[in-house]
């Protein structure tokens, strides 16, 4: 689920040069200040619609699986699948196809921090949902996920410098 390059562009020499330049810029970013976090809204137009459809399908599929297991074996068993790595699997294969195996490995490495944050998310929900309103419980849990994941990411990135 990382940024894609070169999707949705018309074929042609000019576009290929632009494509090459973008790869060059990206390469430079990765090695000069590639560790600086950036938000680029223009990246939303890059992936083809098929990629978004694949992600929607994986999200819907895992959610449906969790729902079916919950109905058949109870909500605690269904809850296991709320942290099933299917979305990561879809993302990694898409990234590998379009950006290479190395970037796919980086995606998985980053997901480790997100998965640790998921533990915090689930603990906060379990500890608060019977005491607080649902919206507050889920909001605090999501904030916990973000704080845990991003702070761990920042700490490890700083240690590696």
């Amino acid at each position: 689920m990382s940024a894609r390059r070169g999707d949705g562009q018309a074929p042609g020499d000019g576009c290929r040069n632009e494509h090459h330049d973008e790869h060059h810029d990206e390469h430079r970013d990765e090695h000069s200040d590639g560790r600086r976090a950036r938000l680029r809204l223009g990246e939303l137009r890059r992936p083809p619609w098929r990629d978004w459809a694949v992600r929607f399908a994986f999200g819907a599929g895992v959610s449906a699986l969790a729902g079916v297991v919950s109905v058949l074996a109870g909500p605690r068993a269904g809850g296991l699948f709320l942290a099933f790595p299917a979305i990561l699997l879809a993302s990694v294969t898409l990234v590998a196809k379009e950006e290479g195996e190395r970037q796919a490995g980086q995606d998985v490495g980053g997901a480790t921090f997100g998965a640790l944050g998921l533990i915090g998310f689930a603990v906060v929900v379990a500890a608060t949902v019977t005491v607080w309103p649902l919206w507050l419980s889920l909001t605090i849990a999501t904030a916990t996920w973000a704080a845990l994941s991003l702070s761990l990411y920042a700490a490890v990135t700083r240690l590696r410098r």
């Binding site: 940024a3 990765e30 938000l39 680029r40 990234v95 997100g114 990411y153």
Partner: peptide, 11 residues
């Protein structure tokens, strides 16, 4: 999708 670097997007 809007985030770089890749490792951060992986989170």
């Amino acid at each position: 999708q809007t985030l770089t670097p890749k490792r951060l997007a992986g989170v």
